[in-house]
Write a protein that binds this DNA or RNA. Structure first.
Length: 214
DNA sequence: CTCCCGATAT
DNA sequence: ATATCAGGAG
């Protein structure tokens, strides 16, 4: 898609979803890190439900590290992948305590060294906890970017690279949230609601549908 | 590429 | 019944 059209798409999405922001509830970088690890293949609603209870007692590295893998796993069970997530949260917490003086690191390089933390999770933490411009490519951003044609790629890394090239740095974090909101409300995985999509005129996916019907 | 995995929408 | 949900590791 042409750069001027990409800017127009972002403008329309910003007007459509002015309230778009991080959907995960957190009160510290550490809470956001844990919530984001939990959010893999799980709805943010479920994560918030689990963490509201979890963070009452266990909201710091020092407190979480007192739990066994089985104990933590049981508390986060309903988020799915609970054995991996429990092991990763405890592993990441251990590293934060040993190597980072109990503070969540604020660089991509250090974040992705933590177990269970890849580029997507690292970008969420950088953007929402530390105010660093970043575009986390999750399932929604990946799907919506490819459909619209604002950044096409076979992997999240490729889509992230394209988005960073096509979007002004100071719009990265906001755009990331617009794309997620749009993916949830209109450009859904199963039955995208193109009839009510404000950016359909610019969308490659929609325009291809129109072509096929001719 | 496969595996991890429970909850919900369709 | 099955696809999908703020992915990451082996």
């Amino acid at each position: 898609m042409k750069k001027e059209n990409i800017e127009e798409v972002i403008k329309i999405l910003s007007e459509t979803y002015p309230e778009a922001k991080c959907a995960l509830n957190f009160n510290s970088p550490y809470e956001l890190l844990v919530s984001t690890i939990l959010s893999a293949q799980c709805t943010d609603v479920r994560v918030n439900q689990v963490t509201e209870e979890l963070y009452k007692e266990y909201n710091t590295p020092e407190k979480v590290i007192s739990l066994t893998e089985e104990e933590l796993g049981e508390k986060i069970r309903s988020c799915g992948f609970y054995k991996n997530k429990s092991k990763n949260i405890l592993g990441a917490t251990r590293t934060i305590l040993k190597e980072h003086n109990g503070e969540v690191p604020n660089t991509m390089e250090e974040l992705i060294k933590l177990p269970g933390v890849g580029r997507k999770t690292a970008n969420v933490v950088l953007s929402n906890a530390f105010g660093v411009p970043a575009i986390a490519v999750d399932t929604h951003v990946f799907r919506v970017s490819n459909r619209l044609g604002i950044s096409k790629g076979n992997t999240p890394d490729a889509v992230e690279k394209g988005l960073m090239e096509n979007i002004p740095r100071d719009m990265w974090s906001d755009t990331h949230h617009y794309l997620i909101w749009h993916g949830r409300q209109i450009c859904k995985a199963r039955r995208p609601n193109c009839d009510n999509c404000p950016v359909a005129p610019y969308c490659e996916f929609f325009n291809n549908l129109v072509e096929e019907k001719k």
